[in-house]
Nucleic acid binder design. Structure first.
Lengths: 116, 116
DNA sequence: CGCATAATCAACCTAACGGTTGATCAACTG
DNA sequence: CAGTTGATCAACCGTTAGGTTGATTATGCG
């Protein structure tokens, strides 16, 4: 597999188990055992999934005695969002030209508001 | 690899060659040979990449004599966008609570506008 | 028909993925 | 210290990904 950041992120997301783990982490930190609990899978397998997520920068791990709490890190998701954003107008075609223009204007005024 | 739609899409995107192909197709339809031209790779390899993209629904292929023109299909990218959208507030933390609330309100009014 | 072109099919190879089991390390607890 | 718990490491295994080369199919052209 390619090892550029975006490829690592997409590859990490291309697995339902890992996406479920991220969904769980969106609710707060969790230990490896807590994350493994819902799955019919060995703890070691979950540990490997976490390593994949960590390599992609999607999680970080702390240290609390013998527990290694995992925390969601959204930065790579923002990269994904920015990448996919370049194709946004492709699926907004159905709105037609006028409505697409409205979206564009709306986005640009949002830009002014946020970035000033 | 898992074969649910989202996993197929993420997996298809987890390769720089395939992402470049999509970028090329964003400019318009193209034949397999045209798509293969920039890459130092056999035509068969590109053909396989196209099959992966097709299985994910990211492209469709027509038929024009011996050419099989490829066309970008953005629907799966919209699915990706919707999935990642659930985490948007995670990387917008830096805007602070007030601004995040503004975003939430803004989104909900957009929803009213689009879905009615 | 005979041939060139566009693209796919088929077989093969290496490396990585996703899972297993068993052993090990690290930290708390009695 | 001995034992338990949390988690990782290591080796292994079957399958798939991503590339190659060689053969094959389909279309257009002289």
């Amino acid at each position: 597999m390619a090892n550029d950041p975006l490829s690592l992120t997409f590859a990490a997301l291309a697995d339902p188990t890992r996406r479920e783990i991220l969904a769980r982490l969106a609710e707060g930190e969790a230990t490896v055992n807590a994350l493994a609990e819902p799955f019919d899978m060995s703890l070691q397998a979950i540990s490997k999934h976490l390593k994949v997520l960590e390599r992609a920068g999607l999680i970080t791990r702390g240290r609390d005695a013998q527990w290694r709490p995992c925390r969601l890190e959204a930065a790579p998701l923002e990269e994904v969002d920015q990448w996919v954003d370049r194709y946004r107008d492709r699926w907004e075609e159905r709105f037609g030209r006028l409505d697409r223009e409205l979206h564009r204007i709306q986005n640009s005024t949002e830009g002014e508001k946020n970035h000033e």
